[in-house]
Every structure is written in C-alpha cells, then in structure tokens.
Amino acid sequence: MLQTPRGGAGDGTAARDSGLMSIGMVLNTLREEFPEVTISKIRFLESEGLVEPQRTPSGYRKFSAGDVERLGHVLRMQRDHYLPLKVIREHLDAMERGEAVPLPVVGRQRDAEGALEPVEGPTVARIGRAELLAAAEIDESALEEWESYGLVAPLEDGVYDVEAVTVASLVAELGRFGIEPRHLRVMKAAADREAGLVEQVVAPLRLHRNPQTRAHAEARAKELAALTVRLHAALVRTALGVRLP
C-alpha cells in the first residue's frame, strides 16, 4: 500500500502540516512500486483527468493521500491490465461513487509472476487511437511505424480492437531489448499463416445453416488459436534450448 512519505527532499513544514504533498514528494512515494514513473507522467495523468490535485495561489500542485492512492491504482491497472486511461477513469469514478463494478480487462493481463495470460470477464470491445497511445505509452510516430509494418491496424471505423493494446504493449516491451518493429515482420507473417490454418478448419462450420453449428465454429476457432499459441511458444523454447515460464 502506498504510504505518505516522511521527510526527504522537498518535504517542507507547510506540506507536513497540511497533509498535502508536492509533486516531487508524490514521485518519491510512487517510485517505490513504479520505478519508471516520472513527473511528466504524473502531469499527463492529471491532464487526462485521472487525478485533480489542489493548487496553491501561486499555481503549485498539492496532492492529498487520496490523490496518491488513486495514482497508484491508475499505474497498477496500466501495468498489470493494459487498460486504456478512459476505462481506468470510469472504473475509479464508479468505485468512488460506491458502485460495485468488476475490473474491465483488455486482451491480456499479467499473472502473479508478471507473465501475460488470457483473461476472462467483461472486456472493453474497442478503444480509440488516443486511448491506445496512452495505454501503450507510445507516441504517434511509433504507432504509425508499427502500422506501416502491419503489427497494429485500425478497424474500418478507425478504432482498434482489444488485442491492439496487447500487441502495442508487447512491441514496446520488445523495443526495450533493441528489437525494432521491422524485426517483427517475420512474427506477423507467421501469425497470419497460423490464423489462415485455423480459418481453413472452421470455415465449413461458419457457413453452416444451423446457428448452433456456427456458434460452435467460434468456440472451435478460439480453441485452435490457443493451441497454436502454445505450440508456437513450445517451438521457440525448443529452438532456443531454454525453459521459459
């Protein structure tokens, strides 16, 4: 649980007496759990309406313990669930109103060991471009580059499906290891071939007159997709000669 810091740089008497914290104090508190957070990130979350700190007459931000706790929730939901900021804001606002709302999920989330895993439950069907940029913490130029390689693609109406958040977040993570989008074209090509194979199997079921049979096609496609993902992971582990979680 986030704790209000005691002492340290920027911990003035006025701040201690009022129970409010400067943005620098908030940064120090959050970095215990989120080492990569920056003052710019906190300001961005404020601009997106995720937190509303008080302002002094001279314009300085002053955060309450509740503000810091809310920021921690936001960063946690971004890190563990890849939720768009709009969804996070709506979820936290509902919680503050006392509503019992389940946590929405998008595509994948992290398990207790930090690995990505499929999720079940209410999902966010589509997100806009700005929400995708915020969720993946990338800029417009990066997204345009990824789109040029076919790694991420908008739907016909310009929005993105839920898996785009997962793809964008994973491409960003791979980038930290020096793997550029152009290197991932081979993965995209392999994924397209695997999807084509699954489609060949379920296509006759999709065209059937019986609605139950068509519904069965969707279930079969999901099952086959899961199997191909497991096989792909196993083949990569075998090729590398390593054991991965």
Score class of each variant (00 low, 15 high):
Gly107Glu: 02
Leu143Tyr: 04
Arg185Lys: 01
Leu83Gln: 02
Pro118Gln: 00
Leu170Pro: 01
Ile127Lys: 08
Pro57Leu: 01
Glu218Met: 07
Ala65Cys: 02
Val236Glu: 09
Ala219Asn: 08
Ala225Met: 03
Val26Leu: 11
Val68Lys: 00
Arg108Gly: 06
Ala9Thr: 12
Leu205Asp: 05
Val119Ser: 00
Glu117Phe: 06
Gly72Cys: 06
Arg220Ala: 14
Gln78Cys: 11
Ala190Trp: 03
Arg237His: 11
Tyr82Ala: 15
Glu90Asn: 14
Gly175Ser: 11
Tyr149Ala: 09
Thr123Val: 11
Glu113Ala: 12
Ala94Lys: 09
Ser58Val: 05
Glu140Thr: 12
Gly49Thr: 10
Pro154Asp: 02
Val201Cys: 10
Arg43Lys: 03
Leu45Asp: 05
Leu132Met: 05
Ala226Leu: 01
Gly49Trp: 03
Glu223Val: 02
Gly7Ala: 00
Ser18Arg: 00
Tyr82Arg: 13
Ile88Arg: 06
Ala233Lys: 13
Ala15Met: 11
Ser47Asn: 06
Pro84Gln: 03
Gly8Thr: 10
Gly49Cys: 06
Ala135Ser: 12
Asn28Asp: 13
Ala142Met: 13
Asp139Pro: 03
Val105His: 01
Glu156Gly: 06
Glu113Cys: 10
Arg182Asp: 12
Leu184Ile: 00
Ser18Asp: 01
Val68Pro: 01
Lys222Asp: 13
Ser47Lys: 12
Gln54Pro: 00
Lys62Phe: 06
Ala153Leu: 08
Gly128Val: 02
Ala219Lys: 11
Ala134Asn: 10
Ala14Asp: 12
Ile88Tyr: 04
Arg206Ile: 08
Ala190Met: 00
Pro102Gly: 05
Gly49Leu: 05
Pro245Ser: 03
Gly107Arg: 02
Glu223Ala: 04
Thr238Phe: 07
Val87Gly: 09
Ser22Pro: 11
Gly72Ser: 13
Val201His: 07
Val171His: 01
Thr166Lys: 00
Glu180Ser: 12
Glu137Gly: 04
Val236Pro: 05
His81Val: 01
Leu170Tyr: 04
Glu99Asn: 10
Leu244Met: 14
Leu197Ala: 12
